[in-house]
Amino acid sequence: MLVVIPFILAAGSLSTLVSGAPVPSTFSARNAFASLRSLVERNSDTYTTYGGDGLVSQGWPAQSDWVSSFDTMLFNNNKGIMTSSCSEWNVADNSDSEITDIYNGIKTVSAESGVDARFILAIILQESNGCVRVPTTNWGVRNPGLMQDHNGAATCNENGVQNPCPADTITQMIRDGTEGTSSGDGLKQCLAESKATDVSMYYKAARIFNSGSIDSSGNLGAGVATHCYASDVANRLTGWVYATHTCSESSIGSMTGTVTATTGGGDTTNPGDNTHTPTVTPTTVVPTVTPTIVVPTQVGDSTPSSTKAPGASASCKGWYTVQSGDYCGIVEQKFGVTMAQLQSWNTQLLSDCSNLWLGYSYCVSA
């Protein structure tokens, strides 16, 4: 079986129906292996081709099938890709602090807009693989930043490359793509335009974000721009990271129902439409690799700091005091534990890790 690294498909310019060009990328085997080795936990890393109108009745995933938490989706599933995606444009890869800034930016904008943080992250991955220095594209409409938004102000790669990419610029990239700009809509507006009240609103909004509209047939794979876009986003939301991409751009527009990949590959081209999205084939095939998970020998300190986290286990055997820049993913990797374990030992720790407080000691072994 071959592993095809997911490729970047840029958003459309939305209201004008002019798609932004794909940002070409060939995610190297070297980076793929490094990312796989660093992976600690994934949900369901398979690719299912979703055809039709985005309804659960046609096989599309219910929201309960999504990766359970934003932290898991970013730090456990996709951090490996985000750590090494920028090198494909010969610019510096994301630093840990820049990935933390992406995390904080998504959380901020999600709270502002009401748009699910996991959905924002799925679009960022689809558009730029999370590279803060992704080039600004312009194929009739300028598309900058992490979400290749509609003529937004924020970018770290246009008329020069910024390294480091400032935290406020990263947040503004996410805000422009989620809340829209004066020139075009963001995810918030696309969700409203979907006119759906069930989970299909996300898949329809993804299609609108990419191409500016949904085909009159209602099929999310028909019409212009990137036909597999909504299917790709649905897969990212349910845990797809490295599994073979099997959606066929040439046939998904006439398909209803689902096809789950087992072995082999599918059509991984991004032909788009001559008027909207130029043809590119930005995939790299690498051999199948089984990641080796090394459990650290660290078990934590025998005594906590003066301040225990609320809800920490009274029978805790190992403690960790949170340092600047920490998040749940780092703690999980450092001590070889899962988010579920952390929450069982620290009963007031929220699933989105928003109350992992600096200077507090949390139980990491019991």
Rank of each mutant, 00 (worst) to 15 (best):
Thr347Ile: 11
Asn355Cys: 11
Gln341Thr: 10
Cys363Ile: 04
Cys353Gln: 00
Ser351Met: 02
Ser344Trp: 10
Ser361Ile: 03
Val337Pro: 00
Asn346Ala: 04
Thr347Glu: 04
Thr347Ala: 10
Phe335Glu: 10
Tyr362Thr: 08
Gln333Ile: 11
Phe335Tyr: 15
Leu358Cys: 00
Gln333Thr: 15
Glu332Arg: 12
Leu350Asp: 14
Glu332Ile: 05
Ala340Ile: 02
Gln341Phe: 09
Phe335Asp: 09
Ser344Phe: 08
Val337His: 02
Leu356Ser: 07
Cys353Pro: 03
Cys353Ile: 01
Gln348Gly: 09
Thr338Ser: 15
Asn346Lys: 07
Ser361Arg: 10
Thr347Asp: 08
Ser361Tyr: 08
Trp357Phe: 11
Gly336His: 01
Thr347Ser: 14
Cys363Leu: 06
Asp352Cys: 11
Ser344Asn: 13
Ser354Asp: 15
Asp352Glu: 10
Ser354Ala: 13
Leu358Ile: 01
Ala340Gln: 11
Tyr360Asp: 01
Gly359His: 12
Tyr362Trp: 10
Cys363Val: 05
Met339Asp: 13
Glu332Gly: 04
Glu332Gln: 14
Cys363Asn: 02
Val331Thr: 01
Asp352Met: 09
Leu350Trp: 13
Asn346Leu: 03
Ser361Phe: 04
Trp357His: 11
Val364Arg: 04
Val337Leu: 00
Leu350Met: 14
Ser351Phe: 02
Ser344His: 09
Gly359Thr: 10
Lys334Leu: 09
Asn346Ser: 09
Gln341His: 05
Asn346Cys: 04
Ser354Arg: 14
Leu356Ile: 06
Val331Asn: 00
Leu342Gln: 01
Gly359Leu: 10
Cys363Asp: 03
Ser361Trp: 03
Ser344Ile: 02
Val337Gly: 00
Cys363Trp: 02
Cys363Thr: 01
Ala340His: 03
Gln343Pro: 13
Trp345Arg: 07
Gln348Tyr: 11
Ser354Leu: 14
Gln341Glu: 12
Tyr362Met: 06
Leu342Ser: 04
Gln348Asn: 15
Tyr362Gln: 07
Leu356Met: 08
Val331Ile: 07
Trp357Arg: 13
Val331His: 00
Lys334Val: 05
Ser361Met: 05
Ser344Glu: 09
Trp357Cys: 08
Asn355His: 08
Leu349Phe: 12
Ser351Asp: 03
Glu332Ala: 08
Phe335Val: 11
Asn355Gln: 11
Cys353His: 02
Gln343Asp: 12
Val331Leu: 01
Val331Gln: 00
Gly336Asn: 00
Glu332Phe: 07
Lys334Ile: 04
Thr347Asn: 15
Ser361Asn: 05
Gln343Thr: 14
Gln333Gly: 13
Leu349Glu: 05
Cys363Arg: 02
Gly359Lys: 09
Gln348Phe: 13
Leu342Gly: 07
Gly336Pro: 00
Tyr362Asp: 05
Gln348Pro: 08
Glu332Leu: 12
Ser354Trp: 13
Thr338Glu: 09
Ser361Glu: 06
Leu356Asn: 04
Met339Cys: 12
Gln333Met: 14
Gly336Gln: 02
Asn346Asp: 06
Lys334Pro: 02
Leu358His: 01
Ser354Thr: 14
Lys334Phe: 06
Gln343Lys: 15
Leu342Ile: 07
Glu332Asn: 10
Asp352Ala: 08
Ala340Pro: 01
Val364Phe: 04
Ser354Asn: 13
Leu349His: 04
Glu332Trp: 06
Phe335Ile: 09
Gln343Glu: 15
Gln341Ser: 06
Phe335Met: 09
